[in-house]
């Protein structure tokens, strides 16, 4: 799998911590592998929206990658609840159901961005950089630990 220049947290140089929310274990593992190529760390996983809310409060990740179609509570509703409680939360929707209506609804209810499945690592990488903004820093291997 392709490797990317690691994205670290600007404030402390630590890996960006992710919460991955998807009802498919297979999809979560795949996203986890992609995140590792970005130098990130999977801080937690959830298989539905309700668990995602609990997990967010527990681990306070830097970024949430959130599926839409899930049992119990769908991703857009979960994103809204997380952002209501945590206005600084960065939620990126990652879903195959990428039609205009869904994308607009997700953004209106607090999501920062939308990535269509199947996920292209280079697309997700650019989205992560954009969503982190100044809170993320690219750290080349030569500069690691500096």
């Amino acid at each position: 799998m392709e490797q990317f220049v690691p994205i670290k947290r600007s404030k402390d140089g630590q890996p960006v911590r992710y919460l991955i929310v998807d009802d498919s274990v297979f999809a979560r593992k795949n996203l986890g592998r992609i995140i590792e190529t970005f130098g990130g760390q999977v801080a937690g996983e959830a298989g539905d929206g309700l668990t995602a809310i609990t997990e967010y409060e527990r681990i306070k990740p830097d970024i949430v990658l959130m599926d839409i179609t899930m049992p119990q509570m769908e991703g857009i509703e979960a994103a809204e609840k997380i952002v209501q409680q945590n206005p600084d939360a960065r939620v990126v929707m990652v879903s195959s159901v990428g039609y205009q209506e869904n994308i607009v609804a997700a953004l209106q209810r607090g999501a920062r961005h939308f990535v269509q499945k199947p996920v292209k690592p280079e697309v997700l990488y650019e989205v992560i950089k954009y969503v982190l903004g100044e809170d993320g820093a690219l750290v080349s291997a030569a500069g690691a630990g500096a």
Partner: peptide, 28 residues
């Protein structure tokens, strides 16, 4: 893998149909 493949293909197809004006819900 089969469930996720189905999810991705159907989700992408539904996105096209939705943009054509059809509204529906995809179940997991």
């Amino acid at each position: 893998a089969v469930c996720e493949l189905a999810n991705q293909v159907i989700g992408n197809a539904v996105a096209t149909l939705n943009d054509q004006g059809f509204h529906f819900r995809v179940h997991p």
